[in-house]
Structures are given as C-alpha cells and as structure tokens.
Design a protein around this nucleic acid. Structure first.
Lengths: 231, 231
DNA sequence: CCCAAATGTAACGAATTCCTACAGGGCGGC
DNA sequence: GCCGCCCTGTAGGAATTCGTTACATTTGGG
C-alpha cells in the first residue's frame, strides 16, 4: 500500500506542485490550505508523513508541529521560507523530522520523504513482541501469558495486533486500519474491524468497562497503550 | 547513556569544530580522517549516528554511505560541499538519512542529529501533568486523585483540559477555545463548550458556587488557576 | 430592583461503538 | 465427496459519547 502524505500550505500553486510531484512518485496525497481543515482530516485518517508550511494564516505553525510531532507522534517535515539557522534549529527541536527551505526542488522533497519512510521499516525485522506481561509470537500465532500460558490468535487478529504493536501510544484511525489491512474502504467493513478488535480485547482479557491496553477514541480511532519492545 | 556520533571528514578543522559542538551537546564522539580508519573502528563499535563527508581522498563516499545505510542499517548523515539538488537526491536515495551542505552551522547539525535519534524512541510521548493534587495522564485518558484513585475522561474533555493546562493562570477566550478545538465557528457551538467545561468541572469535583480551578470570567472566557507542572 | 445577556446544567437524541449471535466459506479428517 | 470445525464478516440491539435544546441561574448595567 502506498504511503499517505499530507500537504499543508496556504499557497495553491505550491500545493499543486507538491501533490503532482508526490503523485508521480507513487504517494497518495491530501492537500489542505488551512490548519483547521487539516486537523479535521486528522481525526479521520493517519498520514505517514505530514508536510507543513510554517506561514499559515490561521494558526501558529510551530505550535501545530509540536502537537503533531511530540504529542501525536506523527512524522513531520517543515517546509518554510524562513531560512535562518535559528528557525531550522527551533523547528527541529520542537519535533520536526526534517526542515526544507523554500524555494525547493520537488525531487528533493520526494527523496527526503522516502528517507523518513525508510527509517520506519528498518526497525521492525522481528516477530516477537513483549508488552505489559504479554508476549506475542507472530511466527506461531501465539499469545503468551505472564505465567507462560499460551493462547493462539487468528490471522485477522494478528494483523490488528501487529498494527497496534508497531505504533504504540499513537492514535490509529479507523481509516488507517482499513488501508493497512487491505479492507475495501466504505461499506460496512468498519463493523468487521469492530469485531476484530472486540475479539482481540477478549484474548487480552481486557475489562470492557475499563480497557487498559486498547483504548477507544470516540469518533477517531484507537490507541494502544503499553510498553512494547520487539525482539 | 549518551549517544555515540562518528565524524568522518578529511579536514582536521571541520572535525575539530564538529567534535567540539557535539561534545558540548552531550554526545560522545569519534573522529576519523580516512575511510579505512573509520571502517576499522566500525568492527569494534556501533555508532548511533555517522556523519560522513563525501569528499574523501581514499574512497568514494557514496559507496560507503550505501554500504553503511542500506546494508548495515546505520543512521547516516551526509555532510557535503556539493550543493546541487541532484547530489542531495542521490545521496538520500542511496540510503542517507539526512544531507547537510557545507558550510554549515554546528547548531543545525546537532539539531538534525537529535531529530534522527528521536525517531528511535518515539513510542513513549508520556505526557502527564500535575496540578493541585491531581494528575492528568493524557496518554491513557485518566485523571488521578491525590489518593491515587483514577477516573477516566473522554476525548472531548481531554481537549479542554489540555488547553487549560497548557496556559494556566491566563485568560482563555471562548473564541480561542473554539479555534483550538477545531470547532466550526459560529452557530450554537459555544454552548457545547459550556457543556464540556461543565462535565470537566464535575470530574474535578468543583464546587459550582465556588470553583477553585476553572474560573469563569463573565463576558470573556475562563481562567485555569492551579500550579501546573508537566512531565 | 429589573432586565437582558451570559453562563450552568439536566435531559434528549443523533452518531458512534460494543457485543452477542448467526451465516457463509475454507480446510482437514474420514 | 461429505461432515464438522474454525475463521471471519454481517446484523441488530445495547451502551457510550457528545452536541443540542430547554430551562434555571448568575452577572452587570441602568
């Protein structure tokens, strides 16, 4: 599945240039001219990389970057006309993953996006994950208790569990789940997702009234809490 | 444990400048003037980040980067005097994580190294805030009593609480709230804000006649009193 | 003191999500 | 090929969230 890149810039010409270049490079794109529109979309889907222009009319760009990067754990690339070293340093310190100066060459933007996406896959070659007393063995579809007792999980359950374990403590939207798990969007497939998660919760012995590991965010998606370490 | 950063550059002055700046930033450093020395050291230790200059006398820099990044999985930042877009694109495509152009400011190098290191441990944003006996755990949507008892709060309530905790003892206007919380302005949305705050007050066990934490400023907005400390 | 505007809150309802069946389909055993 | 088991999506009702409405209460000006 191709990666989803969002573009947030108030100049239509730049949005167009970027979305053309990114589409040609094989990415899916979503463009926004204002921060409020962008934030509304964030509630529905989780982009892989966010391109953010700092000179926005309706919100302070740096605050937005900080919330995106540090609180939501998104991958953020700042695109800005402010070329001072100090601007770049503060942008990166606030959590941005990269800082590109206008005017830019679309080819470089594409290359830098690819560099960001590469790091994500580089750190998960493993098939066993530990979290909060549990151990998930993806190679043999088994979930191990803290006492060593094992239950098996199905393929569909494993897909959801892996998605959670790869992005712990980050919002995972329903749309992103469907994309990742190959679900044909729309329709009533999202109800199937409910059931998958419900079954996974049962296997993790979650208390329905007070789930500790898989938390529901009404209207947005889910968050997996729990300290994950792969090995 | 501080991160280990290696410096590979044939100019002693640049090596010195970098290692001084990195040491001051709290990194451990190792400097090399030639690729062969560097490769010998690689057999003994694994650096967290490798700074590599492309203009090396004894080896083609790009080949070295390619081997380091893609085959060995190291984190590589190219530092180069070659400023053409095409140079940057090929460097990044070959597996480099970043590309810094000479002449550079050491502060930016430090910021970019930190950005690379951050991606490795991005899984635990752990944002909690303490105020007047309460502890708000935003990661698991829980509000903790001074006795340790926990109540959960919803996503909408959390947005309001976060807004308050980010600007304590300062007037927060209704307009600012709506803007921050993605509310489509106008209409009767402001009553929704009232209700959110009302529900939040209930969870904070505020006395309606005499609120101690969330104070209403008639005709203006709200002020959150309370000594907030984030961690 | 009176009134209009602003704010608090309980109650309702739409939207969303959870969960318990139930049905279709794949796969292995016989 | 037939049977039964397990996996997985679908359906519908229960439960939760949260905005809206309606009405009570408070505030501040005259």
């Amino acid at each position: 599945m191709s990666a989803l890149v969002t573009i947030l810039d108030d100049e239509p010409a730049i949005r167009q240039m970027l979305s053309d270049a990114l589409a040609e490079a094989g990415f899916r794109t979503m463009s926004f001219g204002r921060a409020t529109e962008f934030e509304a979309a964030l509630r529905r889907t989780t982009p892989d990389v966010c391109l953010v222009d700092l000179g926005l009319p309706d919100r302070d760009g740096l605050t937005l970057v900080h919330r995106l990067a540090l609180e939501q754990g998104a991958t953020v690339i700042i695109i800005s006309g402010r070329a001072q070293v100090q601007d770049r340093v503060t942008g990166l310190e606030l959590g941005a993953d990269d800082y590109i100066i206008k005017p830019f060459d679309p080819a470089e933007v594409v290359a830098r996006i690819r560099a960001r996406l590469r790091t994500r896959t580089r750190s998960a070659p493993s098939d066993t994950a530990r979290f909060n007393g549990w151990t998930a063995h993806f190679d043999r579809y088994a979930l191990e208790d803290e006492t060593g007792e094992e239950t098996t999980f199905s393929h569909a359950e494993g897909e959801v569990l892996r998605l959670f374990l790869e992005s712990p403590k980050r919002l995972i939207t329903r749309a992103h789940m469907q994309e990742s798990l190959g679900g044909a969007a729309g329709e009533s497939f999202d109800r199937a997702m409910d059931v998958r998660i419900s079954r996974l919760r049962t296997k993790l012995r979650e208390d329905p009234k007070n789930p500790r590991l898989i938390k529901t965010i009404y209207g947005a998606g889910y968050i997996f809490l729990g300290d994950v370490s792969w090995s």
